[in-house]
Design a protein around this nucleic acid. Sequence first.
DNA 1: ATGAAAGCGCTAACAA
DNA 2: TTGTTAGCGCTTTCAT
Lengths: 339, 339
Amino acid sequence: MPDKKISIRDIAEKSGVSVATVSRVINQNGRYSAETEARVRQIMEEYNYVPNLLARGLRQQQVPEIGIIVPDITNEFFGRLVVQIESELFEHGYTLTICNTNEDRMIERRYLEMIRAKQMCGLIRISHEHLREEELIDIPTVYLDRIPENIKYTGQCISVESDHEQGGYIATKELIKQGCRNVGIVLHDAEISTKAHEMRYIGYKRALEEANIEFDVKKVIRVKRADCQNGGRAALEFIERRGLPDGLFCTSDLLAVGALDEFLKHGVNVPRQVRIVGYDNISLAKMMMIPITTISHPEHTMVDITCRYFLSAFAKEESELQKKKRIVLPVELIKRETA
Amino acid sequence: MPDKKISIRDIAEKSGVSVATVSRVINQNGRYSAETEARVRQIMEEYNYVPNLLARGLRQQQVPEIGIIVPDITNEFFGRLVVQIESELFEHGYTLTICNTNEDRMIERRYLEMIRAKQMCGLIRISHEHLREEELIDIPTVYLDRIPENIKYTGQCISVESDHEQGGYIATKELIKQGCRNVGIVLHDAEISTKAHEMRYIGYKRALEEANIEFDVKKVIRVKRADCQNGGRAALEFIERRGLPDGLFCTSDLLAVGALDEFLKHGVNVPRQVRIVGYDNISLAKMMMIPITTISHPEHTMVDITCRYFLSAFAKEESELQKKKRIVLPVELIKRETA
DNA sequence: ATGAAAGCGCTAACAA
DNA sequence: TTGTTAGCGCTTTCAT
């Protein structure tokens, strides 16, 4: 490790120019001679100089850093979003700071304060269903995946989400297309933070209606958590009490995984007796003994739009994104072996 | 949102005191009267004031922020480590900045530069097998999980890892204990970035030796990537060519998952015909139709030691951790149904 | 208990 | 093309 704490002044002295000139070289604004540049660069190299970003940020009243509020990066979907956004922004000179809230509102607030305190220039929120006034920050913001119901599209913000209603619809429609007339649903009863599963449920009902299949509440099982255990329990409930459906739409892959395992354990043939469609396209879904048919989110597009929004916002461009405001993206059916 | 960009000066003026006094209140150093404090706090509240962390950091030549170099947070194990460390440090007033390198050395270098540029006070590295001189930073550092072979314990650093050799040993020993005499191994042939799997292999051999079972290279299958596909292929190789072992140690759970699926598909009874032990205790392992017996890392202890090290280092304490330097933690066998 | 003022490292406005 | 300098918001030393 070379000497510590070399400042722009040191570089200026050693290269025999003023700090302003060094600053110009660093920021490549062109107002210097080729020889000067060469000399300064050489000295910077030699002393392994790195500009102090705190000083720069303080001076410029801004830092090329974007915060992302995310409930839990160990959730595969969020993790992938974060990594892709990070990598894309990094290429453009922006840092992404991950703020993992664990769904805890107080932690989220403390992170919001930090984002302000660090003078970050942008914010991504995978947040709550309802935002309070004091939970807003006046910097370019992208609401991602989980869109607050009371969002006001007045400030500098957009929202990007996938079309859950359509997802529920095409999942169910696929089952019907494959001949199912008795389609059940295992539904994550998410009271907080997102209406996504309810929208999928609405899509499910629309598909039934369109096919003239009567909706039957006996075919609906609501669970409190979207995990394998609950998926298994729901399957058992169908087997032991409610009667086997010939198609089952699970509003999350974890539920589908649990249900599939349980069916197989009880000798129910999937997809012969019961066809299954999951949701989210988690990696587990394709690793099962019988790979699970599922709905995949337009991850890449979500990432792309998010990053493009910031770049245009920082460039003070009036992009089409700024106008659109509320962006809803189509999802895709991934056909595998359970349906 | 309240007025933007309220500074300490604004607060000082509005409360009729000097900036120094406001600063004292913010930092709670006690040198002020109760009335002054009350007034200042009230004004800060009223204007929703947040101290500028850039200015503070610039002044103090330091920022309470720790960087973590991690290959990929979508890897469940790393993700969990990161989240736990983040939460623990956050409680103590430190921010964790995640630097996802995607195993790319150039990205890692750019992140290291950023960590210096932002004047961060600590660094966690899940890094490479071999570190170059110019890839070191002179701040308190914890090498975590993947420990460079050429690490010098001279600076302010420690290393924290789990005992892979012991892991391979107890995994294999368990198989032997359950009566296996013909124990195969599927081994991730990780040429770069970590010797962990080789150590597990060494543990495997030690267990065989101890039980007077002759080591047989025919029972060893090396794969280039630790994923399900390769696990499945290895299982197939045993089934079709090398002959079925009665026990199989997979140096990663993903390999075990793939192998298990393949065995089941071919009608091989697990654990009756083949017992399996995996490694890493990923969530998938317990979600399989036959939950997989595996080795779990001392995650919580790793997190705990990492955080404790920083806290004591920043407090300039001479802790036992500082002396220990190289910390190797025992792993644990998680008994489930494949062995 | 409180205030005045220096200075952290940088950028940018102005001057030359 | 280059230099001088003010000032970003804060902490901290030194007075008082």
